[in-house]
């Protein structure tokens, strides 16, 4: 964990309300699933930093994919090339990656895409299921659909692209058709994570989920972002955001 200065190289809208931020930034090496806290304001409004999953962190370039959700992300979207953004990171524990014969299934729901995409770009194998509201909310479609070694399956609530319905509907089909064992990584809304976790339990698949939580500090001191697990309270920012799905008491 380090506090470093980031300089905006690019900050472009890549889908409805979704932006891709590229920062020139000397952040230490990170793992897929780790995150950073960005200071979006110069003054006290908003007061706290905002947590963002690391999409890419290579060659002194930090990539953040974010959706405008409130005041903080709106300010971030106003950053122009050359502006400074203070970065604290890398934070948290990333996804655990180990060799195996299992078919890897990535589950991404809405704003849960960045850490999952980062992992898929790293592992270069498996099936990526992305669920969004409608087609215009899919960011970086050409980048996602051309991932080497990764098959993309889309689900949209309004049916404008891919299968009409939820990402978990697609997951049910996928696990039925895969021969051999499955390993699942997921990030998205709580309901999706719960359904994914239950599916994993049913088929005996190993499953990790990345949780989204409001955070004050992002590095473990305030204990504001705890989640209840089978082992007691755990800080999403420190022991997470990635947890074994079966440990989470949803």
């Amino acid at each position: 964990m380090k506090e470093v200065r980031g300089v905006v190289r690019d900050n472009t809208r890549v889908a409805h309300d979704t932006f891709l931020l590229s920062l020139d930034c000397d952040l230490p090496v990170s793992r897929p699933g780790q995150f950073v806290m960005l200071q979006v304001a110069c003054g006290y409004e908003p007061f706290l930093r905002r947590p963002f999953a690391i999409l890419g962190n290579q060659a002194r370039t930090l990539e953040i994919l974010y959706k405008i959700k409130g005041h903080g992300t709106r300010l971030l979207a106003e950053k122009r090339t050359g502006d400074n953004v203070n970065v604290l990171g890398p934070l948290g524990k990333g996804f655990s990656v180990h060799d195996g014969e299992e078919t890897i299934v990535y589950m991404a729901g809405g704003t849960g895409l960045p850490p999952i995409l980062s992992l898929a770009e790293n592992l270069r194998q498996g099936i990526l299921i992305l669920g969004v509201q409608s087609k215009d909310q899919i960011p970086l479609l050409s980048r996602i659909s051309s991932l080497p070694g990764v098959e993309l399956k889309l689900a949209t609530i309004d049916g404008s692209c891919g299968r009409m319905g939820l990402a978990t509907d697609v997951l049910d089909d996928v696990v039925c058709n895969v021969s051999g064992s499955v390993k699942i990584y997921a990030c998205g809304p709580k309901g999706m994570l719960l359904a994914t976790s239950e599916c994993a339990k049913r088929i005996g698949a190993w499953c990790e989920v990345s949780l989204e939580e409001f955070m004050s500090c992002g590095f473990g001191v305030c204990t504001g972002c705890v989640v209840e697990t089978t082992g007691g309270n755990r800080r999403v920012c420190r022991e997470g955001p990635v947890f074994n799905a079966q440990e989470i008491l949803f």
Binding site: Y44, E45, P46, F47, E213, M215, S216, C222, T223, G224
Partner: peptide
């Protein structure tokens, strides 16, 4: 001490409210 249920923190104008519950 286990502390209070979540949400435990809320951002306000130039500050924040916490109810960590002394975990």
């Amino acid at each position: 001490k286990k502390g209070n249920p979540c949400p435990r923190v809320f951002e306000t104008t130039a500050g924040m409210i916490n109810s960590i519950g002394l975990e």
